[in-house]
Write a protein that binds this DNA or RNA. Structure first.
Length: 554
RNA sequence: GCGCCUGUAGCUCAGCUGGAUAGAGCAACGGACUUCUAAUCCGUAGGUCGCAGGUUCGAAUCCUGCCAGGCGUACCA
């Protein structure tokens, strides 16, 4: 509908210029918005004000000229007016709204989809937690955001891949091996000193026990380094499979699991270091190799190979991002915790250094999660092994509630996650508020079938009976859905969907409380069934982008 | 010190991509179930958009400075 208004304005402006009523041929992009106040119409444009300086005319005069040349072949306009400093307001005739319902019924699961992405390959990498322990709530937020962003982009015509990067190399893996090995030795009765930097959680003991069950005390008879490596690989493999399961229980499935170690095994890390040395982007100083990230806006240069010859995490990160683009992605999106924000300049620098445009790489920084119970903070410390895992949260509050709550804030805003609140079935907890719409409508449809109604789809004559303000409000709100999806794709902001769904749900509940769908008038009942079924489809489509289920009963 | 993020109703947050009278939920108060699910709805009340300047027809939104909070600032990951 908005596009139609845009088209009308555009052609009118051209005609006004041709007839010399508007001197300049220069026109700004036409912005059309839905005014906050209903009395300002269904749509409004500020073009007359924005064009004032170019046209050298007062805004209201420009608006008059535009309105004079308006043509409306489809008869969708009920009224137009000039208001305030020069806004042009458009009032859509009631009958023009009904076809929105036809569109929803026709397009069904694809209502809201678009070709914004034109099939471009785009990768979303998220979670990518180190395989040294279970996922905690913070990872859950990253998972919800990343998964949803990927879903939304896919819905908008991008060819999306969801990827998980496994940091299965380097020091923390060695530390993991050491932690397990020490616990293993302790199980065999040896006196051990368990260092602070080792992983303290109970899961470490479980792995040690499993190794003992499987291998007996064989590990003591061989070279220690070899045993530690064995423990490391064993534990990492176990942790990854548990992470995979936790994510699966959370409704997140990745298209690809990418191993950091593979970058070393295939020589990609050393290749990129050599290549950048040749380009003088990497240089030697004090026995270490440095990447000149200051050339790309970083505060200082960063080490890629240490004095002792070991590569840093940054080295494999460079190779990793090179590899992503080599795999043919037009755009690469990383979802990181906000505590990693200092890494943006250096990774962006690496992307730019290899000749790629920096806007092909985006980082979504997700702020941290504060876990609460009844408003009281739950202390968490990863090092001490005391944390609430994602799995525990999902078990306690349910996957739908957890996912939805993670998406009720802009990712830039810190999130308080209250376990008790998440379980409450009240309006504090908007998941159920939205899901309830779906369930209620299912119930109406069931009742309708019991009464012998069969066809709930689009019917022009019936639909035109929908004249109640609440009905038109619902249709108008549903008409906005495709634009909401596009905007959340453009800005990579899933919370826009969440807020939209709450608004649509609110419109529906208000309607439900005021009007009956199943009435004595068969045509009216048919019209209303067509309406509520459309609402159900939009709710279902939106929830699916968030990875939340749409239940038929609650 | 420097960098990034945040500051909007009592609380939790939208709005920040300049637009008209700044919104929602919760909490408070008052109402609505013999009806398709009350996990719902209707109404009342609640504001110096952190502070001060600037940009312009117009600022919560953009710019500058200041104040407060969070995070970061490793040859750690």
């Amino acid at each position: 509908m908005k596009d139609k208004i845009k088209g009308i304005i555009e052609s009118s402006v051209l005609r006004a210029h041709k007839s010399k009523e508007l001197p300049s041929a220069e026109f700004p992009d036409i912005e059309v918005e839905v005014p906050k106040i209903a009395s300002h119409g269904d749509f409004s444009t500020n073009i007359a004000m924005v064009a004032a300086s170019v046209q050298k005319m007062p805004p209201r005069k420009i608006a008059e000229a535009i309105l004079k040349h308006i043509e409306d072949p489809g008869h969708i306009l009920a009224k137009t007016e000039i208001a305030g400093p020069g806004f042009i307001n458009f009032f859509i005739s009631t009958g023009a709204w009904h076809p929105v319902l036809r569109k929803i019924h026709q397009e069904d699961v694809t209502y809201g989809a678009s070709n914004l992405g034109q099939g471009k390959k785009i990768q979303v990498e998220f979670v990518s937690s180190n395989p040294t322990g279970p996922l905690h709530v913070g990872h859950g937020r990253g998972a919800a955001v990343g998964d949803s962003v990927a879903n939304i982009l896919r819905c908008c015509g991008y060819d999306v891949q969801k990827e998980y990067y496994i940091n299965d190399s380097g020091r923390q893996i060695n530390t993991l091996g050491q932690s397990v090995y020490l616990r293993y030795k302790a199980l065999l009765g040896e006196e051990i000193q368990f260092p602070q930097e080792c992983y303290q959680g109970d899961y470490i003991r479980d792995y040690a026990k499993d190794i003992l069950d499987r291998k007996g005390k064989a590990l003591l008879d061989q070279d220690e380094a070899q045993s530690i490596l064995f423990c490391a690989r064993f534990a990492a493999r176990r942790i990854i499979s548990e992470i995979r399961k936790d994510l699966s229980d959370f409704g997140v499935e990745f298209d690809n699991w990418f191993s950091e170690q593979s970058l070393y095994d295939t020589g990609k890390v050393s290749a990129v270091v050599e290549a950048f040395k040749d380009k003088h982007i990497i240089y030697e100083k004090e026995g270490a190799l440095w990447f000149k990230t200051t050339d790309f806006g970083d505060e200082k240069d960063r080490v890629v190979v240490r004095q002792n010859g070991q590569t840093t995490y940054f080295a494999s990160d460079i190779a990793y991002h090179m590899d992503k683009f080599a795999r043919g992605f037009d755009r690469v999106i990383d979802v990181w915790g906000a505590d990693h924000h200092g890494y943006i300049p250096r990774v962006t620098g690496a992307v730019e250094a290899s000749g790629l445009s920096r806007d092909r790489f985006n980082v979504i920084l997700v702020q941290l999660v504060n876990l609460l119970r009844e408003g009281e903070p739950i202390a968490m410390s990863t090092r001490a092994g005391e944390f609430v895992t994602l799995n525990e949260v999902v078990k306690e509050v349910g996957r739908d509630a957890a996912r939805f709550i993670f998406l009720t804030r802009h990712y830039d805003s810190p999130l308080d996650f209250d376990l008790e609140l998440a379980k409450k079935k009240t309006n504090d907890n908007p998941v159920f508020y939205v899901q309830y719409v779906h369930a209620r409508i299912s119930s109406i449809l069931r009742k309708g079938r019991e009464r012998g109604m069969r066809e709930f789809g689009w019917d022009k004559t019936a639909a035109e009976m929908l004249q109640e303000p609440e009905e038109l409000q619902l249709i108008k709100t549903m008409g906005r859905y495709p634009e909401v999806v596009e905007d959340s794709a453009k800005y990579m902001e899933p919370h826009r969907i969440t807020f939209y769904l709450m608004e649509l749900a609110s419109c529906f509940h208000a309607y439900y409380n005021k009007h009956r769908v199943l009435t004595d008038d068969p045509t009216l009942s048919k019209a209303r069934l067509c309406l509520v079924l459309a609402v159900q489809k939009v709710i279902r489509n939106g929830l699916s982008l968030l990875g939340v289920s749409a239940p038929d009963k609650m």
